[in-house]
């Protein structure tokens, strides 16, 4: 008999792995990627490819330089690359993408200990650095579908900046709600097609990769606040939900494991906080969009949210509850 393995229990493990989970996220992002190519042309695919390549390369180089085992096999850098690309306008110069990827992978992720240790979402970190460094390139919005006609890309306003001027009536320059849903509007590569993003989100929930609580509370909070702010204007609220990066952020960025709470009530607080900050920025700040900022602010609060929502160990609950149930 050969040598036996002696290891602590349990001796069986589930088939889930980190790379499997990341692959599921990648699969969930594919519909939105396809939609982005249809809407903005092949440059959308090029930017996504560059971001994936840079993120994986930086992750690989970090491992090499630090003489650590490489972690590119867990595909988390691929996910970061796709998410960062999805948060960029299609006209962004490629070298700027490289800067964003560097910041996302090296500064936000690896400086703080790599996967699971980053305190803010790497893709959002990278995006915000690009936004403050290259503000004009980051806010130059290309008109959708124009590339198919073969004419030079014209710039357009995003629905959110149009909504900024809301005074009780919706501007006629807004795309129709149907176009908002399928993504025929100005915006970042991956955020425009709400339908494709929702399909991906449903896939992640069905595969139990994410729980619905964060997206529902995030979007729900924005919806409630917008309804109140517009004194019950349903159309305005629908535009707010479908605009900007809300759906992309709620399903794919706010649900990032490392930077969201693991407890149920923690998730609720986190998502409601994201919703409030997003709404306040959209309604009152100079910036048109607040999803990225809201998520990054709530990211920083996660350890505190987790500390106050820590579940009570089994049997440590108040005696009252036990007695009440017994009487019933």
């Amino acid at each position: 008999m050969k040598n036996l393995t002696v290891s602590p229990s349990p001796h069986v493990r589930s088939s889930e792995t980190v790379s499997g989970i990341m692959l599921d996220v990648i699969i969930a992002l594919v519909p939105a990627l396809i939609a982005s190519v249809v809407i903005f042309g092949f440059r959308a695919a090029l930017i996504t490819a560059v971001c994936i390549g840079c993120c994986v390369l930086f992750e690989f180089l970090w491992g090499k330089i630090m003489k650590k085992e490489t972690t590119i096999g867990d595909f988390s850098a691929v996910v970061t690359g796709i998410l960062l690309a999805f948060n960029l306008p299609v006209s962004i110069p490629l070298w700027m993408c490289v800067v964003g990827c560097f910041f996302a992978i090296i500064v936000v992720k690896q400086f703080f200990g790599g996967i699971g240790q980053n305190f803010v979402n790497p893709a959002i970190g990278g995006r915000i650095v690009m936004l403050v460094s290259f503000s004009s390139a980051m806010t130059r919005w290309t008109e959708p579908l124009v590339w198919q006609k073969g004419v030079d890309a014209a710039t357009t306003a995003t629905p959110l900046s149009v909504l900024k001027g809301y005074d009780g009536t919706l501007s006629s320059s807004l795309p129709s709600l149907w176009h908002m849903l399928i993504g025929v509007r100005g915006g970042c590569i991956g955020e425009v097609c709400a339908l494709a993003l929702l399909a991906g989100g449903v896939y992640l929930i069905a595969r139990k990769v994410i729980k619905p609580v964060i997206p529902l509370c995030f979007i729900g909070t924005v919806a409630v606040i917008m309804l109140i702010a517009s004194k019950g204007d349903l159309e305005f609220t629908a535009y707010q939900i479908l605009s900007g990066g809300l759906i992309l952020g709620a399903f794919f960025m706010a649900t990032d494991y490392s930077t969201s709470p693991i407890t149920f009530w923690g998730k609720v607080i986190f998502a409601v906080g994201c919703g409030i900050i997003t709404s306040v920025i959209r309604l009152y700040a100079n910036l048109p969009e607040g999803v990225s900022y809201s998520i990054i602010i709530m990211n920083i609060l996660v350890p505190h949210i987790e500390a106050i929502t820590r579940p009570k160990p089994f049997g440590e609950e108040k005696e009252k509850k036990n007695k009440k149930e017994e009487a019933a």
Binding site: G113, I115, S258, I262
Partner: peptide, 21 residues
Amino acid sequence: KKERACIHCGRCADACPMNLL
């Protein structure tokens, strides 16, 4: 399974019948 870094997914907390983290 090969041991990797914790990704803070919360599956352990969901699975714990004693409500621990």
